[in-house]
Design a protein around this nucleic acid. Structure first.
Lengths: 338, 338
DNA sequence: TATAACTTTTGAAGCGCTTCATTTTCTGAA
DNA sequence: TTCAGAAAATGAAGCGCTTCAAAAGTTATA
């Protein structure tokens, strides 16, 4: 089923068929009808591969993510997909499984597909951007939640600022014995949030070493949060627990209620990410909302600019601000808001 | 950057470069080294579009899903992606947004991309399979959770059997005043589960009209479950609530605890889907687990068979069985299992 | 040294489409 | 009726690759 078949059935030249599809105004209305009929009769769908080969821009955008079974990553991927879709493109979903080699293989594959570009949530939380210098086939890339240096565009969310938001909220409620779940040897994002937390305490004239207990967690799921919180409770009950993400917060909630403590009366909890579940948890969870919709839109736009643009493209770095969403896990007076 | 550039740099013909890439054994080791050097020097990545044009099979599989912000759909999409990936292919993710026209446009787009095939979760819950008879470009498709009739392969999970599993479990615990959240005018899947529930009661010699209160819900989220359960409680407290999905079950849990009732002591709850969250809900949730991993694998395999196969392909229909996972929301004695 | 039997390399043809310089057809004015 | 100018249709060339028949090179045998 090729364009030529349509041409033969319609009794015209291939160029005419191509024109009725791509430049209808160039063909005589009478001919147009005939060709369109032929197209319909044969159920002809032009081969996009061949089109791209002749110079048309691809409408496929690669999305390389980690295979983390985490609601936040899912929601983010979802938001990215939506943003790409709204820009009139399609997503080719690739999973790096957190593996560097696989990530590289995927980027090569995307280059081979001659996609328009790729959105990349790097598998290497702490890699130097150098890794991405010599990409095969010079594929336009936008890095997500990771600084692209001089080499790539990026969209990130300010984690330090998010940590500060959480702490300032808790300080405002009068809490000064605070624990942070997601301490030292963990993810870069967690470390930045902890840094923001310490900064906020200092700014308030409080010594972080005295007022902030940093607890490390072994993972990022509910179980991990529960375990960490149980451990924490052995050495005393804090005023409030700030968690590196919402799942940890849910775990902390379970540990607290199991220990007979009430949230927020005995202990306030603040999560991070504001995943869908946060607002509907047993006690609606106060959280630091990540602007994932906005992140998706910026990322998609940067990529389109980059891939459409001249070679004289200046790499840009968009930094978004998180937002505090107060719910009853920290402040009983608050209505359950979305 | 084309194959010819490599050929020129290496001082050989294009055919030789192509051979070192695709049939290394056909070229002399000495030449091979030279060509491979040239490839590396130039960072050459063959254009997949051109390859496909010359007859190579595409390694892209379309995945058309609904844009439902539901953990279960996300997990399913995830499982499908994984299965496709394990089969050595890539997923092109498309979102029908539950819109028929958009679904059709997407299928046309996939046909235009000459993808290997498509996995399709139909946007029309109750559509006749006829809709999919005349697909543009005769794209091989596998329908998910929807019977494909004579026209397409399909993989489904037996919802009737799932409903029966839930009810038999509750009957075994001695509950006979049961409510089903997800009644009449709702999704096909819900209706089938309700049917299974009624069947199980009848098989036990109980009249469903007497022992099963069917409550309709306005959506499939936590809020909807909560509202429906609140309404239900106005006309009396049942022994147990069987919910059309886990989110509804979480909502029911909130309604019950708000009303001062305890789970499972006053009321037992059984959900459906067994999403990730079920095992870690405040009271771990008994649920009917959908075999999504297996569903993904079967779907991927059917599609590959279909797309590789001769035209004499017999459409197959795989029906998978759900599984009862007992946790403490229905049976306090049970340990919290995964 | 000539010949047969391989091994290796070559490069034109073709995949399905778009483009664009040409050719053909149509219009309307002279 | 003729002809210039506009409109429409044509079809070869080319996009980057693979394939394959033919050419060139190599080795073994007589």
């Amino acid at each position: 089923m090729r364009l030529r078949d349509v041409a033969e059935l319609a009794g015209v030249a291939t160029g005419t068929v191509s024109n009725t599809i791509n430049h209808p105004e160039r063909v005589h209305p009478r001919t147009r009808v005939v060709v369109e009929d032929a197209i319909r009769t044969l159920g002809f769908v032009p081969n996009q591969q061949a089109r791209v080969l002749t110079g048309a821009a691809s409408s496929v955008i690669g999305l390389v993510v980690l295979d983390v079974e985490s609601p936040f990553y899912m929601e983010t991927a979802h938001a990215l997909e939506r943003a790409v879709r709204e820009s009139g493109n399609v997503v080719m979903l690739c999973n790096s499984e957190g593996d560097l080699e696989r990530e590289e293989a995927l980027l090569t594959m995307l280059a081979a597909q001659r996609v328009r570009g790729a959105l990349l949530a790097p598998a290497t939380p702490d890699a130097h951007a150098d890794r991405y210098l010599n990409l095969p086939g010079n594929l336009p890339i936008v890095l997500l939640d990771f600084d692209g240096g001089d080499e790539h565009c990026s969209v990130t969310v300010d984690n330090v600022s998010g940590g500060a938001l959480a702490i300032n909220h808790l300080l405002g409620l009068g809490h000064t014995r605070i624990a942070f779940l997601g301490g030292s040897p963990n993810l870069r994002q967690f470390r930045q949030r902890a840094k923001g937390a310490r900064g906020a305490l200092q700014a308030a004239g409080l010594d972080p070493r005295e007022h902030l207990t940093e607890v490390s967690v072994s993972g990022i799921g509910i179980r991990d949060g529960q375990q960490a919180a149980e451990l924490l409770l052995e050495s005393g009950v804090p005023d409030a627990i700030f968690c590196g993400n919402d799942m940890l917060a849910f775990g902390a909630y379970r540990a607290l209620t199991s220990a007979g403590l009430s949230v927020p009366d005995d202990v306030a909890i603040v999560g991070y990410d504001d995943i869908e579940f946060a607002k509907d948890w047993v006690v609606p969870l106060t959280s630091i909302r990540q602007p994932i919709a906005s992140l998706g839109q910026h990322a998609a736009q940067l990529l389109l600019e980059h891939s459409a643009g001249d070679d004289a493209h200046e790499h840009r770095h968009v930094v978004l601000e998180p937002e505090l969403i107060v719910r009853s896990s920290s402040d009983r007076r608050r209505a359950t808001t979305a």
